[in-house]
Design a binder for these strands. Structure first.
Lengths: 178, 178
DNA sequence: GGTCATGATGATACACTATATCATGGTGGC
DNA sequence: GCCACCATGATATAGTGTATCATCATGACC
């Protein structure tokens, strides 16, 4: 295991939400600092959307976000939330899970070399049983993809890796319960 | 290059379609044989949809398929094409590219160990410049993903790997043209 | 101050993607 | 014949994402 895959669960996944307010606030602060350093404008709207994504603690769809956003923004419409999501993705503060048409906060912890480095390599593990998702940053996967592309002369911009299966929790539940 | 990544271009990509009729016919024959051996029913409708996907030679959306299908099936509706696509994906005869919401014929050549083995490992390289896509089957990527998942106790069912970037053709064009 | 370019947001409408549901019809087992 | 099973027809609706134009704030520049 040389790839130092550091796990990073989103989603309590197994039924309950994850309103770990402290983590959300800390993430928002880091996001603000990152944007400031970069000259990107983390406006009030974008911050609200980021907060909603982080608070959900699991993949959340654009229209679910829109519903929640309307609690604080009267006239919010689809473009309102999509534009904010586009910005947040460009900044690497959130990711989109294509298979789910849903968004999650980036689980990248500070101090792993890159702090929200623009599109950083990441992969998602999606449990088909409980719906939880985990973001992992496995260098081995990133290298293998880069190598395969390079051998074909392909210049990589962004990579989407989404693994659907059964998480450790559900797998062990299956093993005991039959 | 130990992973024996065998390229398999879909899509002439660079402007012209790829109506390589012979290839399409051969693929249809192989598909029929595979389904027969498996007890799966490659009905006329499903065969028509598979043919349309193969003939397009590039990623094609469900509604574009529907339009074309209506040339041969009067009352075709969305469920008509989606049901056929679901079947073809289950059989591994086509793949969906999530980033594009589009479908391509499986480029797996016969004689690589698995013949349309149920979900076989594959990756897509998507050129953001010309829109061409290439399907590759890189064992290194597959192993890296399997390893990362296994270390977390995650049981893999299916893996989606989609790489967005610039293909060799467009990259060299950039290099010469500035 | 005035003008202008830029970028963010508001607001409306629309396009695109996918599924739910019930009805119909064919095939083969019994 | 009857039934179970599967594929398809047909209609309606749900879910996801963009195009477009208007408005407004900010800051550069003259």
């Amino acid at each position: 295991m040389t790839e130092h895959a550091h796990d990073a669960h989103h989603g309590s996944g197994h039924g309950h939400h994850a309103h770990r307010g402290g983590d959300v606030e800390a993430s928002l602060e880091r996001a603000a600092a990152t944007c400031l350093a970069r000259g990107a404008q983390l406006t009030e709207l974008r911050r609200q959307v980021l907060r909603l994504v982080l608070e959900s603690g699991q993949p959340i769809g654009a229209y679910a976000l829109l519903d929640r956003l309307r609690g604080e923004r009267r006239g919010a419409a689809p473009p309102t939330v999509y534009r904010a999501l586009d910005f947040l993705m460009e900044q690497g503060l959130i990711h989109k899970i294509e298979r789910l048409n849903a968004f999650v906060g980036c689980a990248e912890e500070p101090g792993h070399g890159h702090t929200h480095a623009h599109p950083h390599p990441h992969q998602f593990l999606i449990c088909g049983r409980c719906g939880s998702t985990a973001e992992v940053c496995d260098e081995g996967v990133a290298h293998a993809v880069a190598g395969a592309a390079a051998r074909l002369g392909f210049v990589v911009h962004r990579t989407t890796v989404e693994v659907e299966g059964i998480c450790a929790h559900c797998a062990s539940a299956d093993a005991t319960a039959g």
